[in-house]
Design a binder for these strands. Structure first.
Lengths: 196, 196
DNA sequence: GTCTATACCACGATAGAC
DNA sequence: GTCTATCGTGGTATAGAC
């Protein structure tokens, strides 16, 4: 599609998404005004409606992008064939890294679900469920192999994801522990937690 | 203090707290208006200012009550002297039960920290830290006893709390698993995760 | 202690000029 | 594609009657 003279959509759209994500993460969806977002982008509030249907649709776009990025990144990172414990370790390291790299998107995607319209909520939940299923498949494989002792793989998947995502709540770059060290310690706990 | 004729403060105050907690949990602090809260309480919005300084102070009161309830409940539930692994199991069961019983307060206290004034934030964080320290003390004892293998007790405490609190995000009463069964499965994972 | 009434301000979203 | 201007609504908080 030819770019019209004077068109700046390819600059403004990413700026809009970046500003909205940062502000929603910092103050919460309802606490942020379209005028605030527009101020960060460098346009007037009315101009934003070239890119969104309404404020709530903007939130949905941000969450969908995040979940699709997550699923895509995992699908290209996932190791093809390996023992389940190795795949579990790979998942844990992938999860921690991906989530630490996108703290704002993670925060918004977990905290603002209640501000989605029901139809949008359903679609985001389906994407999240697909990701949880990826972990659960590894745990089921481990149980079948006999390398993991798990009374309930669904519940274990939820427990492990909560634990791993929790890194985001306290980790600060430049703190007492490096990312790699944190990863190592979590991997150790994860492997032991599922062990037979 | 003598109760004036027509005074209904002892009815209205708890209703205010209950309504605010439920609405904040459901829609988010910023998305809820004083008029909405007043409607649930059965008074006009202006009347609420007999009980609060402002909306933000109401949020702080709710969070402080929750954290003080938590610390008090733990201090009366905590077993005096026992092996660290037994104390850890007791903590895990206490944590899951207490948090499932107060889903709204837990949700608000974790999600709305960003809406506290800095001075209030500091006080809530101090209370939360005291609770985390209770778990960390158990983990340190376990390491000294030799019953737990933990490279970093602070990090392990954060990981376990995130995992246990995560039950709130998916557990539904009357679902596939009973509370007791969920507790058992989590306790099993927690014990294994810290194991030597 | 609660009411009605209201001051004052900001919100999301749209219209029409450029 | 962005601007200015604005519509209609609803926000927090307060004042003063009862």
């Amino acid at each position: 599609m030819a770019r019209k003279p004077g068109s700046r959509a390819d600059i403004t759209r990413p700026r809009l998404h970046a500003a909205a994500l940062r502000l929603f993460a910092q103050h919460g969806f309802s606490a942020v005004s379209m005028r605030q977002i527009a101020g960060q982008v460098g346009v007037q509030a009315g101009a934003l409606y070239q890119y969104i249907d309404d404020k709530q649709g903007l939130l949905f776009d941000l969450m969908r992008s995040h979940m699709e990025d997550l699923l895509h990144a995992w699908s290209t990172s996932r190791p093809p064939d390996a023992p389940a414990l190795a795949r579990l370790e790979h998942f844990a390291r992938f999860h921690i890294r991906f989530h630490l790299d996108r703290a704002d998107a993670v925060f918004v995607s977990y905290m603002e679900l209640r501000n989605l319209a029901p139809a949008h909520f359903t679609r985001i939940e389906a994407l999240r469920r697909r990701y949880e299923d990826e972990l659960e498949a590894i745990l089921r494989a481990g149980r079948e192999e006999g390398s993991m002792a798990l009374p309930d793989t669904k519940l274990a998947a939820m427990a492990l994801i909560a634990m791993l995502t929790g890194v985001n709540t306290w980790f600060r770059e430049g703190g007492r522990l490096s990312r790699d060290r944190v990863e190592d310690i979590y991997v150790d706990m994860v492997r032991k937690a599922v062990g037979g």
